[in-house]
Amino acid sequence: MTGEYAARVRGEAIPKQHVEIFLGASLPRGARNCATSHNDAAPARRIRQQRRWATQIVVIHDLALRTCAERGLAPPDAPEPMQLLTIPETDVADLGSIVAAALAHSPAARALLAALEREQEIPETAVRDYYDRNLDRYLTPDALRRGVDPYTEPSDIQPYEQVRDAITRELRRAAARRAFFDWLDQARADVVYAEGHEHPGDPTHQDHEHRH
């Protein structure tokens, strides 16, 4: 019955109680701000949006647990309740509050992202191209102190060989995040939400919002 579950994943119910437990925890401030409305809406509306936001986190956690099992990844020690961790503001900006919070709270989501990162192959040509297009990011410490134009003196730029590994890690991390988003889009395509637990940005419910 719809009164008993927040969502169904492959026909299996996620109890509303899981969402309420998550809501009852002390969410990090950054996540709480993103989970609420950004205007002067009535408290009831804010609570509805918080519940929809929290449902997304719980659903992603469930989907990640399933995918980890399918991939043979070591399951998290304690899937419920999810551990509360601080969400870096940069992650909220880069990923959106829902995915950032899911990765912060769900060991399964983090395990899946780590596996995806290990799978990414970054061609040498892509690493070199990134370096050539972003020379201003690789000024030497002395050049930074002097405030030089990075394109006037080649000696003011760190050699490619010194920064190659760091660039590769950065590109691999970015590719893994894109792969995570692709996985999530596919994984939650068949999720069915109970009324009042839809995605906060779903335009089919009356007080939807697109801030994630």
Rank of each mutant, 00 (worst) to 15 (best):
A104T: 09
M82N: 05
Q120F: 04
R133K: 10
I21T: 03
A74H: 10
F22P: 05
L65S: 13
V9E: 03
S106M: 14
D91G: 02
L103V: 15
A31Q: 13
A44E: 15
D185V: 03
V127Y: 00
S26Y: 01
L103Y: 14
A114E: 15
L116H: 05
E12R: 12
R177L: 12
S155L: 14
R172E: 09
Q17K: 06
L113S: 03
A93C: 02
R188P: 03
E198P: 01
A194W: 03
R173D: 13
D207V: 11
L113F: 04
A74E: 15
H61R: 07
R118V: 13
Y138W: 07
K16L: 09
P75W: 10
Y151W: 12
P141S: 06
T67Q: 15
L184M: 12
T36E: 15
A143W: 04
S155D: 13
L116F: 07
D207R: 14
V191Y: 09
E89A: 11
Y160W: 02
E124H: 07
L184D: 02
L135F: 07
W53I: 04
H205R: 12
R177N: 00
R110C: 08
Q186F: 01
A101S: 15
R173V: 02
R145H: 02
R128Q: 09
I14A: 05
T2V: 02
W183D: 09
H18G: 00
P200E: 06
D185K: 14
E89Q: 10
A175D: 08
G11A: 07
L171M: 09
A44Q: 13
E89L: 08
R52Y: 01
M1E: 01
R110D: 03
A42F: 06
H212R: 11
L65T: 07
